[in-house]
Amino acid sequence: MKPLIRGGHRIPCFGGRRCVRLVSACRRQNLQVPPTDAPLTGPRLAALFVAGLLLLNFPLLALWDHPVTVWGLPLLPAALFAIWAGLIAVLAWLLERLPD
């Protein structure tokens, strides 16, 4: 992770809302925008894609093929929807923390 540099001090910036706020504060004060971990977003998304492809295909799919119910829902569709929702959540988290 690259730290934000402001006023001669290094502030570790791991992205997220705080990082976005710092970056926009720097923009407002016409300071040089410090480096963030935004360059990592591309590789992270690629890794998430690979993870999604693996989770939703042979052979990991078979993990959920059991006649079991979770809170009354059959395991297979419940697991597929849960993986799906998880992918979307991580994607949203990765993209929304990017500064504009």
């Binding site: 998304l45 690629a46 939703l56 569709p77 597929l80 799906w84 992918l87 979307i88």
Partner: peptide, 21 residues
């Protein structure tokens, strides 16, 4: 076919993971 309706929507989800690039 049970869960077979899903790939048509899981594919776009995977594609959107790469949309930013």
């Amino acid at each position: 076919g049970g869960v077979w309706f899903l790939p048509i929507y899981l594919g776009p989800t995977l594609a959107m993971l790469l949309a930013w690039r």
